[in-house]
């Protein structure tokens, strides 16, 4: 019973914060509400006996993705004040697409028989590690290769604007070259 109350509470937090993410007129507020949504998802994982997943969710999504989004907003927006207006298309179009997506997903979930165990299976972090690094090693490594390719691609895209690689190399001896990682304007 208490677990159902907990689930209801977390689900309500996720839904309400997700609503604020899309309805917020201020971009920074939207990103911070997204952080609340993601922490709520982590709480769901924790309730389902998956503490490792919950920790990774907070570490990568809230600590990494949200922080980078916030940083992106800060460095790309011209901010005359604490406002960062979020521009979006008409509400009607968004409503139609969201409803259509919801109907499709709801039908798919409704139609497909998913046998759910009454009790969530308890997998220890050790078992998880063995699964990732023994049984599914190839898939795991392939995924990391994909991520590596994405990182290299991002670096290539970001460095294209460097004026002169030779002089940049020389300046690098005293101070690092002007790259995207440097933030002080």
């Amino acid at each position: 019973m208490s677990s159902q109350i907990g689930f209801g509470l977390v689900a309500a937090i996720i839904l309400v914060s997700a609503l604020f993410v899309v309805r917020s007129k201020n971009l920074i507020h939207a990103v911070l509400w997204l952080a609340v949504t993601l922490i709520g998802t982590a709480a769901l994982y924790a309730q389902l006996n998956a503490p490792f997943l919950a920790g990774v969710q907070v570490l990568t999504y809230v600590g990494g993705v949200v922080t980078l989004m916030v940083f992106g907003v800060m460095v790309t927006r011209r901010h005359g004040g604490a406002e960062a207006p979020a521009e979006s298309d008409s509400d009607e179009k968004g409503f139609i697409f969201a409803t259509a997506l919801f109907v499709v997903l709801a039908l798919a979930i409704w139609k497909s028989p998913v046998p759910l165990p009454v009790q969530a299976p308890i997998a220890t972090t050790n078992q998880l590690a063995h699964a990732l690094l023994d049984d599914y090693l190839i898939a795991f490594e392939a995924l990391s290769l994909l991520l590596l390719a994405a990182i290299v691609g991002a670096v290539v895209l970001a460095r294209r604007r460097d004026p002169d690689p030779v002089s940049g190399e020389e300046a690098g001896a005293a101070a690092p070259t002007r790259s995207t990682t440097e933030v002080v304007p």
Binding site: A35, G55, V56, V58, L59, V62, G63, T67, V70
Partner: peptide
């Protein structure tokens, strides 16, 4: 993870 939250 909580340490990473500290920057927000």
């Amino acid at each position: 993870a909580i340490g990473a939250l500290g920057v927000l």
